[in-house]
Nucleic acid binder design. Structure first.
Lengths: 114, 114
DNA sequence: CGGAGTGTAAGATGATCGTCGAACACTGAG
DNA sequence: CTCAGTGTTCGACGATCATCTTACACTCCG
């Protein structure tokens, strides 16, 4: 097997979906949840690859949290990478913006919660 | 009681919500449904006040249809008016666009269904 | 190695949501 | 008035979804 750079992992790599392959319905369904909205907002306020899954201030257990990240990946909103024991995240701003122009901005600009 | 112009009705007027009072979550939730997406698209392709509720080609009964229109009203997406025995509809394009710029266009431009 | 930390997988539970059928109210036409 | 057409409301049902608990796998560190 090929030599791997820093950040190697023997865990199963997270499954990602290209935003181009995401339907409008899937995108809207992924965004229509308070916890996921909060995750995206927090993620948007942090630099890429600096936030591990457990570092978010959301009122759910880690099992539910894992599920939410899975949904966000499936909607092409989040990219994940294993870094040691942690799984760090990145918001796919440009790619998602190219597929759904203005949608992310709508979420991030809004000042209401519910 | 005041003299009423043409189109008077003794039925309870439909309850509308101003798009300005709609939260992002409510808007996204309203749009995250295949039937409602179809309703909005069909409505967008017709002139204002020309489509009665029963004139839409959706695969649900009239009870469910009535529910969907109620959700769309609550999200500030649709305005309704009684005209004789029928209730005719209008897509609130400009008002909704002012509150959520680009969101409606996203739905109407997309060429995928699910 | 052994233990703490991190995240996923599987099963169960409770709530929400979309749907339908039936009953009801209203309108317009005969 | 009677009747057909239109739409809403109510109760019920089933499916989906968010959540939790438990168990498991992996990584790092001592």
């Amino acid at each position: 097997m090929p030599n791997q750079a820093a950040g190697a992992s023997h865990r199963a790599a997270p499954v990602h979906t290209d935003p181009e392959d995401v339907s409008v319905l899937t995108a809207l369904s992924a965004l229509a949840d308070p916890v996921r909205i909060q995750l995206i907002r927090e993620l948007a306020g942090s630099a890429d690859w600096t936030r591990s899954c457990g570092s978010f201030d959301v009122p759910v257990g880690k099992a539910a949290l894992s599920h939410h990240f899975s949904v966000l990946r499936g909607a092409g909103l989040v990219e994940q990478r294993d870094e040691g024991a942690k799984r760090v995240n990145r918001l796919r701003r440009e790619e998602f913006e190219a597929r759904f122009p203005g949608l992310l901005d709508l979420l991030l600009r809004a000042d209401d919660t519910d």
